[in-house]
Design a protein around this nucleic acid. Structure first.
Lengths: 211, 211
DNA sequence: CGATGTGAATAATTTCACAGCG
DNA sequence: CGCTGTGAAATTATTCACATCG
């Protein structure tokens, strides 16, 4: 057990958990899994798996491995998934719609409870029972519902302004999907997904190989 | 100039480029930019910027900085963006639609030229002039058009099968948006975006802070 | 002078390899 | 014995600090 958990370890926890979940749902359920088996499944080295899991305390049984149910519960707890999170989504464009109607997040414990947009033609409508509201009500709704997590799915030019407004409204964590590096106070948790970076990574690798 | 360029540097190149592009489009265009200025703009340290840019060769002018146009061109070339890439998109769900109609990729030089799906009700339609075709024609179309890059936007359960088929069809690089760790041959370039990982990162950070 | 480019120091992460234990 | 847990080594990335040069 270390002081603080490395970023990479946290990322992998999600993948371990996903794998364990599958095992728990299998009919002829096994009790335990070894670091090698979990590693083979997730494509990480057994050493990495053990080092990662050691951050959770001493869960492993020598000669046997890790109890699947116990490991699953512990990871869930570490990841803050022992309770459900209400999420605000900003941006009711095509990407926003894809995220709003996607059922996968709810299963993980993230429930989009409100969508904000400025587009008058969308305000008032609902997607999968989630109301699209005027952005002007953001502070009120987020404060009232005590929402901590928001997803930004607005166009590039509106991203920083949206982040500022979310933070003023009391949001503590932001997942940014706009291709824009946001400036936020240190205490705000921020994770970004920049598809352009990923695509240009691929073109770099392809171009490099040609040489 | 180093042997091979670190992953982080490549990621940042996209962000430097984006910033330079803005500068080039400004009315009263400046000639040069220093590592500190570029760092302030992109929120990286001047040292990181210089170390990154040194991978491109010796482009800087002491006392002056880097010529914006030259730097921009050089980064573009390194990232393989001196030519346009045709992209195949697999999955015509909500996420697929969001990506297909998004105009940002085209500006970067990535043009979605075909969409594949199995859904009979979608096949034959077009989004923004891009035809949705039956997945069964994937090998033929990808080979004929010599497409090298594909984006996977299919449900979890179909992701690996889709990747296998893409690779058999001759695809060299994959951007995977499904929450599934794909197994691909070493020579295939793979980048993944796993939104669940990002969201669970945020819940981890929020839960940890509470403690 | 004032900026780059880089060797060296530092920090972070991954991997190795093996002691220790049920 | 066969696995975990972990020091130590190796690797990778970042930051510092300064010699260098236009």
């Amino acid at each position: 057990m270390k002081g603080s958990i490395p970023q990479g370890t946290i990322d992998r926890m999600t993948l371990y958990k996903r794998c364990l979940e599958n095992l728990l749902n299998e009919d002829n359920r096994r009790q335990c899994i070894t670091s090698s088996e979990l590693g083979k499944e997730t494509r990480f080295s057994p050493a990495t798996v053990r080092r990662d899991l050691s951050c959770l305390g001493q869960l492993g049984q020598r000669k046997v491995g890790y109890r699947i149910d116990e490991l699953y519960d512990t990871i869930n707890k570490i990841l803050g998934l022992d309770k459900a999170w209400e999420v605000a989504l900003v941006g009711a464009g095509n990407l926003g719609k894809a995220l709003a109607v996607y059922q996968g997040f709810k299963k993980l414990g993230f429930k989009v409870v409100v969508i904000f947009d400025n587009d008058k033609s969308k305000i008032g409508k609902s997607w999968k029972g989630i109301k699209i509201r005027d952005t002007r009500y953001m502070p009120e709704v987020i404060k009232r519902k005590k929402i901590k997590i928001a997803i930004i799915a607005v166009p590039f030019v509106a991203a920083q302004k949206t982040a500022d407004m979310l933070i003023k409204s009391g949001i503590k964590a932001i997942l940014n999907l706009a291709p824009s590096r946001l400036t936020v106070p240190d205490k705000i948790k921020l994770r970004s997904v920049d598809l352009a970076v990923k695509l240009e990574n691929l073109s770099y690798l392809l171009a490099r190989d040609k040489m």
